[in-house]
Design a protein around this nucleic acid. Structure first.
Lengths: 231, 231
DNA sequence: CACGATATGATGTGATCACAAAAATGCCGC
DNA sequence: GCGGCATTTTTGTGATCACATCATATCGTG
């Protein structure tokens, strides 16, 4: 009756030295980020444990961690499920991203040397390639990698985790929307950001990141509205 | 050799219907917030379980949740310990608070009616009373209650948890500093915030909250500098 | 006396089990 | 045929145990 799709990579090898729980956490996290869990459906400990071939213990802790990071939600029934996106929540996520990500970018700016800039350019090329190939999944992965590589340059111990929590929340929604409308209309402001970095211009970098977020989230909000009208 | 102090309330009753793990979480959270764990010392599962009179299971999950919320940190040894405050971390916490809390306040502003304003005034009076009595612990609790009551008015599902994570990180440090220098020099801008609320003036509210954060964190940074010079 | 190897204890991780509550299922009466 | 109730199954929570690993203490040797 259950199991409409297999949410996990079948060829997922576990690096040794890593705890089993950490591996389960990473598997679940990735599955959530690419939207392999349908919102509203409850995720059971035993179900995940069986699918991954592990015991209940690591799954329990991984699920609880994801709940603490707001990637999953804990219902009053004590069941965990994939949270559904709502317009006010999307609005909040947008506002929070606009508050934190430009801040992280500007704080990281002084720490970006030539090597890091080259890495950013390499990742951005992969983003463009994924867009050209209409490969939604790698586009999302590489886009996230671009942002987080930029922010991580200034080694923030506080702000980065907050941003990661935000991406974990809106990631699956973005994935599902892009999966429907395609990645054709997606434009980013990564080159704008990189020229700002080259000029060491904090304000321009801030504006580029703000624009990038606004563009992306704006199209999502639009899609959300369209979807609301259809139903 | 261990157990210099008892970190928990001896008279802590557990409300029924609540899971044991949730109770342990609350106990640990409160103990951390009032600085009853010394930073750098490792918190062991069995130790906490013994002190609270529960088995290992609920403690494991509570600790893991607190680690996910960055109230505790997970060392490479797989031991959890109370993180120590560092100047760059404090700087980041200040920046993140300045980015998120005024945003939350302004977003909550339209939802603050007369009843909520009265509640804020009541809490602020308790803050002042605690300050007058030099009662650091209740001052911190009531100050936090004031801020969170304000922010929670607009029912943010996203931003509030981020702010709570921040308070959980700098709370114990603030506690330890105020415990040393006393609460005599503490001034807040709560009345400024409340007049801004009465006037429905978003900009004034933003400035009041920013000022409140800056004043508080500024004195902490100063103390941090003094402390660094001493050692 | 200092340094290092070994042994002992402590600790985290993972597995299995027992139990209570909730959900799903089936059944009977209307 | 359908709704309400009892039974069965599923599920989360908590407890206990086994094992590998790490820290500490102890002891031997240079």
């Amino acid at each position: 009756m259950n199991a409409p799709i297999a949410p996990f990579d079948p060829a997922a090898e576990r690096p040794q030295g890593e705890t089993l729980q950490e591996w389960v956490y990473q598997q679940l996290r990735q599955a959530i980020m690419v939207g392999r869990f349908v919102p509203g459906r409850s995720v059971t400990i035993r179900g995940v444990a069986e699918m991954l071939g592990v015991s209940l213990m690591p799954v329990r802790e991984a699920l609880r961690r994801l709940v603490a990071e707001h990637a999953l939600e804990l219902l009053a029934n004590r069941r965990v499920s994939v949270p559904q996106m709502t317009p006010p929540k999307l609005d909040e996520l947008c506002a929070a991203r606009l508050a934190l990500e430009p801040l992280a970018a500007v704080r990281a700016l002084p720490a970006i040397d030539a090597a890091r800039l080259a890495e950013l350019k390499r990742i951005d090329a992969e983003v463009d390639a994924a867009l050209a190939a209409s490969d939604v999944e790698t586009y999302l992965a590489k886009n996230q990698e671009f942002h987080l590589t930029l922010y991580r340059a200034g080694d923030s111990q506080v702000i980065i985790p907050l941003i990661e929590s935000l991406w974990l929340q809106f990631g699956p929604f973005m994935r599902s929307v892009l999966g429907r409308i395609g990645a054709s209309y997606v434009l980013d402001r990564h080159v704008e950001a990189m020229t700002a970095i080259e000029r060491k211009d904090p304000l321009a970098l801030r504006l580029a990141i703000e624009g990038d977020i606004r563009d992306g989230m704006g199209s999502l909000s639009l899609e959300e509205l369209i979807n609301a009208h259809r139903s």
